[in-house]
């Protein structure tokens, strides 16, 4: 028995249903299932889940994240990827050298895009495949909006890249690196997507907006 409909806005502690299965961002007490966050309830078959409207980023296996180096150690870098967890990038991901020139690879303040290989039980990510992002600028958006900014099969972001002729790297942690001629235009478009993420027909409107200003 569901107490809410598909796409309803729910708040923490709200009853979602009884004797149902539940997925992300829900919790149960006996037979009763409640929402743990403020978000949109999604119902499929006998399972309910809640998509948060806002929220902190938790690393997941397979994510691409963008971090900023905050400290350089003898065999590791410490990065800020915008989570509460400690985030360490080990030197063997870039070099087999026993004493690598750490600062030659990444120095404090450098932006790095990395892949999350694994996440341990306290949400610390194991990172690999670092790539330095030189030039350009980084903006921060609500991490829950990233899927909308990427679009289905990255359609939205590919469209923005092609139409503005810029290089964009999107981190699942809500950081977006933009390199190219017209950064301000890309920033405006991404902020529009973030603001209007819950509306439909967004891709067409963004496409029209990009064509118009040319």
């Amino acid at each position: 028995m569901f107490s809410v409909k598909d796409r309803d806005v729910v708040i923490p502690g709200q009853l979602l249903g009884e004797k149902i299965r539940h997925d992300e961002n829900c919790f149960d007490e006996g037979d009763r299932v409640f929402s743990a966050v403020r978000g949109m309830a999604r119902i499929s078959d006998n399972t309910v889940s809640v998509i948060p409207i806002t929220g902190p980023y938790l690393p997941r296996r397979g994510d691409i994240v963008i971090g900023v180096v905050t400290d350089v150690g003898g065999s590791f870098w410490i990065l800020d990827i915008g989570t509460g967890a400690n985030c360490i990038l080990r030197a063997e991901t870039v070099s087999r050298d026993r004493n690598p020139d750490m600062k030659g690879y990444f120095d404090v303040g450098d932006a790095v895009s990395m892949k999350v290989d694994d996440v341990n039980e306290i949400n610390d990510p194991v990172l690999s495949g670092p790539r330095k992002l030189t030039g350009g600028s980084i903006i921060t958006v609500n991490p829950m909006r990233i899927p909308r900014i990427l679009g289905k099969k990255r359609s939205m972001i590919d469209m923005i890249k092609n139409k503005t002729n810029s290089r964009i790297s999107v981190g699942q942690n809500g950081r977006i690196w933009i390199g190219g001629e017209d950064t301000q235009k890309v920033v405006n478009v991404i902020k529009t997507i973030e603001r209007e993420a819950h509306t439909s027909g967004l891709t067409n409107r963004i496409s029209a907006a990009l064509d118009r200003s040319d």
Binding site: I11, P12, G13, F27, F34, A36, V37, T54, P56
Partner: peptide, 11 residues
Amino acid sequence: LAHAGIPMKDL
């Protein structure tokens, strides 16, 4: 707290 999207059991 709810607006920040932090998981809570109730308000």
